[in-house]
Design a protein around this nucleic acid. Sequence first.
DNA 1: GTATATTATGAACGAGTGTTCATTAAGGGT
DNA 2: ACCCTTAATGAACACTCGTTCATAATATAC
Lengths: 199, 199
Amino acid sequence: MKLANTKQLILSTALDLFSQYGYNGASIRQIARTVGIRESAIYNHYKSKEEIFLAILAEFKSKTISEKILNDDLLDDLSNPEKFLRNFAERLITFWNTPQERKFIRLLLMEQFTRIGNKELSTTDYLSELRKMCRLIFSEMIKTKIVKQYDPEILAEQFIAPLFLMRTEYLVSGENKNMGTVIKIVNMHVDFFWSAIKG
Amino acid sequence: MKLANTKQLILSTALDLFSQYGYNGASIRQIARTVGIRESAIYNHYKSKEEIFLAILAEFKSKTISEKILNDDLLDDLSNPEKFLRNFAERLITFWNTPQERKFIRLLLMEQFTRIGNKELSTTDYLSELRKMCRLIFSEMIKTKIVKQYDPEILAEQFIAPLFLMRTEYLVSGENKNMGTVIKIVNMHVDFFWSAIKG
DNA sequence: GTATATTATGAACGAGTGTTCATTAAGGGT
DNA sequence: ACCCTTAATGAACACTCGTTCATAATATAC
């Protein structure tokens, strides 16, 4: 009867509602109603509410951030580090502004402390790959002397933290209403950062 | 019968449970049981669960951060800006590590997007006073030429963001188990920051 | 076209939710 | 001592929660 994949539809609907109302605030019945089926039909696809939640996490855990924001034409710009950092930051913010990613970050912030989320959800885990990427980039820049000899870990932190804080703060407002101004602030951040570290 | 102020006890218990399980995850009965009374007795002090939640927010909104971490002997150090920034950051982190403040930040992160919290809770609001304070400090430092001519707003952001991200990440682990290492990282952050901005 | 596996339904379950209410106990003021 | 306000109780309310189950409709395979 259903043309779309019901199982996947349940998953994306659950992410949608969990990220709006929280895990406890969104009910199985609400998810089912939004999908367009009865609550009992859900259990043909997932054996519990918790399994739906864990399936969402598994889906996002399998995705890697590198391939999303790092590609060859960006890496070519490494010779022009200021431009590179600008592009890198803009891509990162744009990626974080993806509907899916917005929802997941909201879920992360909401549920990382609760019984259901504190085992599988942590900001540290979420940022670990990005941190590693940044450490590598800054290590390389230090090695080629285009950046002062700072600790790459500190540089990564200093680069990421303002961007992530910005992301979490703008997360509250409905849609990407002012992506233009956000990118402007991002650029100011990168400009300061670059002028502070350039060798 | 009760020696302690029941109304205040309900409030602090509610903050405790809300910050652990979320607003929806903690029930009136659970709060009452923890306080040591029946759930119906709660309604002699607050007329609804939502009113308890709003009372918590009101209590924290009335507190000002300046008086907690800024005092005269700290401001005297403004002549030695590096030492000042170190002390300032350490006090800030220590303040954020207060049990009360830990709980409130958790509540903030958890509920800022939900129906109940999104009107009254926002990270931007929570940080606004601190941001203002930092802008003033850095403006002063720029005026007296001990800091390069950067935008004070950017400086405030760059100074606060890594500290706040650190705070939210360490928030998940139970107690102040490794406050020593945290302060060490804070100092590294401040050292980098200072070397980046000093005039 | 019939058998089979998949997916939907509607009703029901036990438990928990926030809240109300009549009643009882306790504390303070005169 | 008394009254009166405050605070606690236990039972009940209507409702929602996650989940189960027998049953019916729908696709898929042969």
